[in-house]
């Protein structure tokens, strides 16, 4: 996509990340901080013993524990050895797993593609995360991970994020489970994994999300859909071609069959939500017609993004 899109001399796509976009992202960041201070933030602190200053809990002593952490006052009352546990704030790693497969690049002539919308949303959320001193990494995938990025921190890295997003190559078949498995083999630091995709994957999403949670990630699912493709007035004898696999099927498209296709499309969205809820992940389905800033605000309203 970056090859034929408009890019500036810094390698950032002007058609996606122009000045207006950047100004809108700044406003979104301010709005997000206000929403966080109002108590809607989730608790995203690591429960480790030691360097923290805020008491969290006790736990029983086991041989080998540092005796400096023993709560002797409690021992005097109960004659049992317990350790004091402190919560320690740590910087969060936020991974934007962006589906770059061919299905994400389909759009009517002159219209934005799902991939472009995904890049914009990821850029906006990245800025907010960087502003929150979290670590951010962009991970494009199709059936595998291409050029995994090391997480960066600080708002100064935002343009690096933009360059990475601008260079996301479109194409490939969707295989989320294989892509995630390959990525997890690179031992990424656990964190928040925001999966942005249309989830047109024959293998489904459940196993991929379970793999993420098993490795300690907190997944968040953002399904982008383009319902304008459902409203096409094409009828008759057709040969439908899968844009990713090239498989062809001959059908006689009637209004009744198109209605059943719409039902199946909605069922696919329900399946994505069910897979997300099975692992406790938040799921959001957003149509392409929704502006990117509204998408960002919906993410915040849904909760779970940043802590």
């Amino acid at each position: 996509m970056s090859h034929d899109a408009t890019t500036s001399h810094e390698g950032i796509r002007d058609d996606l990340f122009d000045a207006a976009f950047l100004g809108r992202v700044e406003q979104l960041a301010l709005l997000a901080r206000r929403m966080a201070s109002s108590g809607t933030r989730a608790n995203r602190r690591s429960r480790v013993v030691g360097s923290g200053i805020e008491f969290a809990d006790h736990r029983g002593y086991t041989p080998g524990d540092d005796l400096r952490n023993v709560d002797w006052k409690l021992f005097a009352r109960t004659e049992r050895l317990n350790l004091r546990l402190y919560e320690e704030e740590e910087d969060l790693s936020v991974y934007f797993l962006i589906d770059r497969s061919t299905s994400m690049t389909m759009a009517p002539d002159g219209e934005k593609t799902l991939l472009e919308r995904a890049l914009q949303v990821a850029a906006a959320l990245s800025y907010i995360a960087l502003s929150n001193l979290d670590r951010v990494a962009v991970v494009p995938f199709s059936d595998k991970i291409t050029a995994p990025m090391r997480p960066v921190r600080g708002r100064a890295q935002f343009f690096k994020i933009l360059r990475v997003l601008s260079d996301v190559p479109p194409g490939g078949q969707t295989d989320i489970q294989s892509a995630f498995a390959g990525w997890l083999r690179t031992q990424p630091r656990p964190g928040l994994a925001v999966v942005i995709s249309d989830f047109f994957d024959a293998k489904g999403l459940g196993d991929a999300l379970r793999l993420l949670t098993y490795r300690g990630f907190e997944p968040m699912v953002l399904q982008l859909v383009d319902r304008s493709l459902l409203d096409a007035d094409v009828q008759g004898d057709l040969a439908i071609v899968d844009c990713e696999t090239g498989e062809t099927r001959e059908i006689v498209l009637t209004p009744q069959l198109l209605a059943r296709y719409r039902v199946a499309f909605e069922q696919l969205g329900h399946e994505v939500q069910r897979a997300a809820s099975e692992v406790g992940a938040r799921c959001l389905q957003v149509d392409l017609s929704v502006p990117f800033d509204d998408v960002v605000m919906r993410v915040f309203r849904a909760g779970g993004f940043l802590g």
Binding site: M106, A202, C243, E247, E250
Partner: peptide, 19 residues
């Protein structure tokens, strides 16, 4: 000629037709 239409997810059509 039979018209060819490219779709984003053929599996969804397969599911519909399999019904």
């Amino acid at each position: 000629r039979q018209r060819r239409v490219e779709v984003p997810f053929g599996g969804l059509w397969q599911r519909v037709l399999a019904e």
